[in-house]
Amino acid sequence: MNHNEIKKMVLFAVMTAVAIILHFVEGLFPMPVAIPGIKLGLPNIVSIVALYLFGPYAAFVILILRVFITSFLYSGFSSLIFSLTGGLLSVMVMSLFWKFREKGFSIISASVAGGVFHNVGQIFAAVAVLRTSAVFSYLPVLIVAGVATGTITGIVSGIIVPRLSRIYHINK
């Protein structure tokens, strides 16, 4: 293992830890209860930052580690299914936007699409678990929520990424 690999490994571990803490912090302040099931998606900031600093591989690794650890620590097995389908779909879509980042799609596009598809993924998981298509009627609300939270996390990530890449001198 050379110096660079060790540095990356440590950074992956640190980012996973940050994501777990953000998940916990998010649970501390509940969103206005008028619309159930909506979260700010703070841990998603870590996924985006990992994606733009190290690429899709890092984003997927950190996501999967985070989802498993937070599910077993805080919420249990049933939430694992929802977090995992939502998270994987979200990172997949964001990776697509990351690939086309030179075609005029900034980090905010990626984040907004990621937020929306995170919720879409969870809806599909809910349909599969509950075996009722009635859940789909909730989709429009969740899309709007995904756009709103995605914009916020996108702006935050847009501030973080250039700073971190300067500090860590990451070789892509």
Binding site: K103, G104, F105, S106, I108, S109, V112, A113, V116, L139, P140, V141, I143, V144, G146, V147, T151, G154
Partner: peptide
């Protein structure tokens, strides 16, 4: 950027 707005508008219209 401009395309970011298009993405946001696209999702909102879909909703």
């Amino acid at each position: 950027k401009k395309k970011d707005f298009l993405i946001i508008v696209f999702f909102l219209i879909t909703a």
